[in-house]
Simulated scan of single mutants.
Amino acid sequence: MTQPGARAAGQLPLALRYPPDQRFEGFVAAPSGALAQIEALASGEAGDWLYLVGAPGSGKTHLALAACAAAESRGRRSAYLPLAATAGRMREALEALHDNPFIALDGLDLVAGRREDEVALFDFHNRARDAGTAVMYAARATPDALPLKLPDLRSRLSQCTRIALSPLDDDGRREVLSLRARSRGLAIDAAAIDWLLRRVDRDLSSLAKLLDQLDHASLAEQRRITVPFLRQILGGEAGQGAQ
């Protein structure tokens, strides 16, 4: 799913900015105490800034969006910014977020090595601290492992409380698909979920998009999602992902 930029996000209703699938209750296998830490920061009950670190598919974006939704549910304005979308305008994008009590910045690894962006992020970090803003970062690597050009930025990021996330195994993916299907009111057999995990891309983002496709097809044909139905709908698409 493509996330909106900072300016567009401010004009979108909560339901569009923070999709229903991206909520704390739909997150599987979180480290002990992690969800409570994130929710406390988002709601204003705790002040320790957080740094989520994990490989692709470990749920960093899910938790960043869930935190923003939690903040909004408590009446606190929030902003989610995927840093990949800010190339060439990092300073402008960050300055536009100044009036949000909670901010989640996703994809720090995409900033590392670009000195102008690092300087903009360093300045943002200091301003946000002075203003009492709550900030959560997300990246694929720890601050020490990022190829940052600014030692002071690395130092600031290292002061955040770190939460390490791990990619889900097949049992975790199976649970996520079941949860998301139930949230849609979608009837899908356990055997159908196993069939999907054996034959299609196991990346959660790809699986979520596929679930949307199957949801529409199921509604159109008024059928449960079973293995024969998957064979009919996916046809040659299956088998292209991980085996």
Rank of each mutant, 00 (worst) to 15 (best):
L146M: 06
L94H: 09
I225W: 03
R91D: 12
S73V: 08
R74D: 08
Q243K: 12
L12M: 14
L157C: 08
G33E: 06
L121I: 05
Q11M: 11
L35N: 00
E118A: 10
G239D: 08
R198E: 15
I225V: 10
L177A: 09
S218T: 05
L52V: 11
G88T: 06
S158P: 00
A67V: 02
R224I: 03
L219M: 15
Q213H: 09
G236H: 13
F122S: 09
Y137T: 04
D152E: 10
N126C: 04
L65T: 05
L197Q: 04
T133P: 01
D170K: 06
S43Q: 09
M1L: 00
S178W: 07
G172M: 04
S58M: 05
Y80H: 13
R7V: 13
L12K: 01
V176G: 04
A66H: 10
A208G: 07
C68W: 01
D171R: 15
L210M: 14
D194N: 04
G236L: 15
S218F: 12
L94P: 02
L83Q: 04
A34Y: 06
A42G: 10
M90C: 14
R224M: 05
Q213C: 04
P143Q: 03
S178E: 14
Q159M: 12
L121G: 01
L50R: 12
I225C: 06
S178R: 15
C68M: 03
D48C: 08
V53K: 02
A67L: 09
A6T: 09
A42C: 13
F27E: 03
D215W: 11
L148M: 14
G236Q: 14
A64C: 15
A191V: 05
V227C: 07
E221W: 08
D144T: 10
L35G: 02
K149A: 14
R74N: 08
A191F: 04
Q243M: 11
A191G: 12
